[in-house]
């Protein structure tokens, strides 16, 4: 019996970089019975197998506008991972990304898995952020980095697989926020539901 682990993933990044497109692509690309009926695209879930566990991503989208910046802590609290998205055609969005990383380092949950996604790689001819920059930066902070295209479904799956792999295998998460539930009755752990 596979254990389901709920992982809260927070999406950060400037407005218009395609945060929700990435999620939509990820969630909807494959037909998946486990998708819970959702209210809208700002909260989505998807379950993917990882090793002998099932990872259920609870993906929290945030509003990227500056004025909502102050609300972000509410969204990233208790996250097991953060996907920080920038637009490879917009240098500004890469700056914002650095700000997010800084904030997460300071105020975010400990051991949060950070994944940097350079979106819109289908538009590499008008690229403003070189791949090298992103890679170097990601290395310096120990984050996953990948260039994606939500439009062409490039690297989306890989992005989340990368996160899955980085998640420590057992409930070593901060705050106990991402506990496990057994599908079966082997343990008396309480069920977690998503709403």
């Amino acid at each position: 019996m596979m254990a389901i682990r709920e992982l809260k993933v927070c999406l950060l990044g400037d407005t218009g970089v395609g945060k929700s497109s990435i999620v939509c692509r990820f969630v909807q690309d494959h037909f998946d019975h486990n998708i819970s009926p959702t209210i809208g695209a700002s909260f989505m879930t998807k379950t993917v197998p990882c090793g002998n566990e099932l990872h259920k991503f609870l993906i929290w989208d945030t509003a990227g506008q500056e004025r909502f910046h102050s609300l972000a802590p509410m969204y990233y609290r208790g996250s097991a991972a953060a996907v920080i998205v920038y637009d490879i055609t917009k240098q500004d969005s890469f700056h914002t990304l650095k700000k997010w990383v800084k904030e997460l380092k300071e105020h975010g949950p400990e051991n949060i898995v950070m994944a940097i996604a350079g979106n819109k790689c289908d538009l590499s001819d008008i690229r403003e952020v070189p791949m090298k920059d992103a890679k170097e930066y990601a290395e310096s902070i120990g984050a996953i980095v990948v260039e994606t295209s939500a439009k062409n479904a490039i690297n989306i799956e890989e992005l989340f697989q990368g996160i899955s792999r980085q998640i420590p295998p057992l409930e070593t998460h901060e705050n106990g926020n991402s506990g496990t539930i057994k599908l079966g009755k082997q343990t008396a752990q309480t069920t977690r539901r998503c709403c």
Partner: peptide, 28 residues
């Protein structure tokens, strides 16, 4: 607490955020 990470928690957070935005509209 176990429900705070799910959809309900998300939209609750959003509503809370929206309300605090409103509350602090002047300052903003």
């Amino acid at each position: 607490p176990s429900l705070l990470h799910g959809e309900g928690g998300y939209y609750l957070t959003s509503a809370y955020g929206a309300l605090s935005l409103i509350k602090n509209f002047q300052e903003e």
